[in-house]
Nucleic acid binder design. Structure first.
Lengths: 221, 221
DNA sequence: CGTGGTTTTGAGCCCCTTCAACCACCGTGG
DNA sequence: CCACGGTGGTTGAAGGGGCTCAAAACCACG
């Protein structure tokens, strides 16, 4: 019945932030928080009430099926915001991939009745960007093959990490796989294939040199 | 190299609406338009500037890969709005599935500098609902098998069409396939499988009776 | 009753998964 | 200094779920 393994064990998640720090009393007020590797920022089903902004580190947002299959909908890098919800229940969970600093804003303060129009507009803008990214990802998951997915992923990361041709991936193969709708073995094999084709070079498993970005773009379809 | 067929021919699309009708001069001003089956409402890459609201009929929003593989990101039913864009370029295309009536609003009027905060908030709300739907669809495309996808699709449609246990699907198998990231043959086979299991009955290929919605929910994972 | 579009069904194959080793790296402690 | 455990990554072999190709059946409509 099941296509994917349902027995994968994810790293144990550690609840609660390492520490909280009251931020400068500007508007809107934010609270800064630190999270250790694999620490849970919020969980699916929890009550919401905050939006979060990444200061440093990387966050993964994911949804789980009852049997443990996981889909990561986005990786959030410094500057990104996440955690918006329509009702006040989180509909996905968020975890720090490595040591991560975050600022939490009260939802009321950025989108509540008293929030300035410019803040609401800012939020609308970010939400529309998220929507576009997610729609692009639909195309990837629905219609691209494994090699195309990895090529697209590397280009996305390269772009978001500053357009350099050397990139330091923050996440393990397992997370990449759950982002791309593949298994970690397939991801590993596609890395090998890109390497053989001469389009990338692996300095280490996390440090990737893009040797031929043009060829990558062509394959990403 | 390619996993999916790249030679599928889509129905020829007919440009332009059948007719335009100036709407009552309320705020915001809308223009009503009618489209025939397979008529293009807007195309990927076109300049935007309007948001659209479905009055009657069903609209599909899709993205294409250069070789013709297609992913439908959403079906829009009466009452739904679509066509929001961050910049003023459409990032996907929209087509009427059957005869369809739509009202077009100037983007400026609902989200521009002069738009009321309540309109912007309304738009934020709709965008966040779209985002949630799209994220759920990521989980479907990334991690569910064919049978689970079709079960989830039927439940989604049943819910949106009013919760009845008989539903009239507006779209052909091909569109369902491109929504679910499958081929039309697989969709057809999964319909047959659900029928054999006794969870649905096909009055015609488009009229589906949900006999055991509980079992469907259980399979949709 | 043809005709074109849609749907179903069949047979074979392939990409990706599954299952299973093995390896590389690294901080810890004997 | 090296054994060690634990995490993360690679590689191999085999199997399967969904795709491809093909043909027939169905259906609305002239």
């Amino acid at each position: 019945m099941l296509t994917q393994s349902a027995v994968t064990e994810y790293p144990r998640l550690h609840r609660h932030a390492l520490h909280w720090t009251a931020a400068a009393p500007e508007a809107p007020a934010g609270v800064s928080m630190s999270f250790a590797r694999n620490a849970e920022i919020f969980a699916e089903g929890e009550t919401s009430g905050y939006v979060y902004k990444v200061v440093s580190g990387v966050v993964r947002v994911s949804q789980l099926l009852p049997d443990g299959r996981r889909q990561i909908s986005a990786f959030h890098l410094p500057g990104d915001m996440f955690g918006f919800e329509i009702d006040d229940l989180h509909h996905a969970s968020a975890e720090a991939i490595g040591p991560t600093k975050i600022i939490a804003f009260k939802w009321q303060s950025v989108a509540g009745a008293g929030a300035s129009t410019s803040l609401v507009r800012e939020l609308l803008n970010r939400t529309m960007m998220d929507l576009r990214h997610t729609q692009d990802h639909l195309l990837l998951l629905g219609r691209k093959n494994a090699l195309e997915r990895l090529a697209a992923f590397l280009l996305e990361m390269a772009g978001r990490l500053g357009g350099k041709n050397v990139l330091e991936l923050a996440m393990p193969r397992h997370d990449i796989a759950d982002y791309l709708g593949l298994t970690l073995e397939t991801v590993s094999r596609m890395f090998a294939e890109l390497k053989e084709m001469g389009t990338i070079r692996l300095e280490s498993s996390r440090r990737v040199h893009l040797i031929d970005a043009g060829k990558l773009k062509a394959m990403a379809a």
